[in-house]
């Protein structure tokens, strides 16, 4: 498996969108993918089921972490030059700010894709990009597709 990833483009976004189609989890998260300035942007579309505690109306921390994990997977698989599959090994999420009952936008930085392991960082924000709600370090086990 080649380690270099394809540059983000309309084609890689289309590949990411195709990966979400037919995924019930992607639908539950309200996953949307778009092309930003040289990067993929991922959006969790807010739904009442994403609330942890209905009294405080913040996104559930586990939902935030799950979406960061899902975005990381989409990023690596959609930009892989060869067919690949992967599974999550570990997700370590830091909750930097309180969240609200709104959409969550996510960008992903791929740190290294080795032959068997990929290391990825995903950051999520609501509103101002430089005020991240959460960031996650994610390790993925890569397999040839």
């Amino acid at each position: 498996m080649k380690r270099d990833l394809l540059d983000a483009s309309d084609e890689t976004v289309a590949k990411a969108v195709a990966l979400t189609e037919g995924s019930a989890m992607a639908a539950w998260l309200g996953t949307k993918v778009s092309l930003g300035e040289g990067e993929h942007l991922y959006r969790l579309t807010f739904d009442e089921a994403h609330i942890g505690n209905p009294v405080i109306r913040a996104l559930h921390g586990g939902v935030i972490s799950a979406f960061l994990q899902y975005a990381a997977t989409l990023e690596v698989l959609s930009r892989s030059p060869q067919p690949a599959t992967c599974r999550t090994i570990s997700v370590h999420t830091s909750y930097l700010r309180g969240s609200r009952d709104q959409d969550l936008e996510v960008s992903v930085a791929v740190q290294r894709v080795g032959r068997r392991i990929a290391f990825v960082e995903a950051r999520g924000w609501q509103g101002e990009r430089d005020k991240a709600v959460a960031s996650a370090q994610i390790a993925l086990r890569m397999m040839e597709g």
Binding site: A24, M25, S65, Y70, T93
Partner: peptide, 24 residues
């Protein structure tokens, strides 16, 4: 439930949601 399927498997993110909940 099948709500959390990604392909034919339950997405691992659900374990994160459940464990965050129960650990809190």
């Amino acid at each position: 439930t099948e709500t959390f399927l990604d392909g034919d498997r339950v997405h691992g993110g659900l374990m994160t949601i459940l464990l965050d909940t129960i650990m809190g």
